[in-house]
Design a protein around this nucleic acid. Structure first.
Length: 200
DNA sequence: CAGCAGATTGACT
DNA sequence: GTCAATCTGCTGC
């Protein structure tokens, strides 16, 4: 069951970030179908969030996509190397986004192993936002892609029990002052695919 | 236009 | 634990 456009219009980005845990994220890039269960997310709460690229209503060629209606992808290049995949939420002109940080492979594992250059199934394949995007074949070419399309889409998946969902500070946003302390990161308890904020 | 920092990862000491 | 890789966008001359 594919999630429809209305799902992404929720005005509460943290509620949606929690709800995305357990959902299936599918991609068909170069005709190759891969999918993961979403295991870790981070919410970016619009123009008042110092950690967001859209803080203070900043609009650039790169961030423009976040101001669109919810239900599209926001892919951007971090540190010049890594493609980070986000889901744009809320309605037009409200730049909410949810970063997908980790997933559990459920389809096309061999394709992901090949893309990641790993010889066997290993949590490293889809752990961490840069790794996940690479495993799914997502890069800047998938920026602005509709999430109800046949290229990238979400499916219902399985419901995660509330007591299996933990929250914490976001990763890599210490510069965001008081907003760095917000518990906007959500992940599935005891899941080996969830990234650790500590050094490996 | 130069300099710098960042929603990161992986190789190496 | 340290560091390089190297794109986007902000700050300041």
């Amino acid at each position: 069951m594919k999630l429809n456009q209305n799902y992404f219009y929720d005005p509460d980005v943290t509620r949606l970030a929690k709800d995305l845990l357990g959902k299936e994220l599918h991609s068909r890039i170069d005709g190759r179908h891969t999918a993961v269960i979403i295991a870790e997310t981070e919410a970016y709460n619009g123009i008042t969030d110092k950690a967001s690229h859209a803080y203070k209503g900043r609009r650039t060629k790169r961030t423009e996509i976040m101001y669109q209606n919810g239900g599209v992808s926001y892919v951007y290049l971090c540190y010049g190397i890594h493609h980070l995949f986000n889901i744009v939420t809320n309605i037009e002109d409200i730049p909410h986004a949810i970063l997908i940080r980790a997933g559990i492979p459920i389809r096309g594992q061999d394709i992901m192993m090949e893309r990641r250059g790993l010889p066997s199934i290993d949590p490293r394949i889809t752990r961490g936002p840069g790794s996940l995007s690479k495993a799914l074949g997502i890069d800047i070419g998938q920026n602005g892609c509709s999430l109800t399309s046949d290229l990238i889409w979400l499916e219902e998946g399985k419901a995660i029990n509330k007591n299996e969902i933990l929250s914490d500070k976001r990763v890599g946003v210490d510069y965001a002052e008081e907003d760095a302390l917000l518990h906007y990161r959500f992940y599935i308890k005891d899941c080996p695919f969830v990234s650790s904020p500590k050094k490996q």
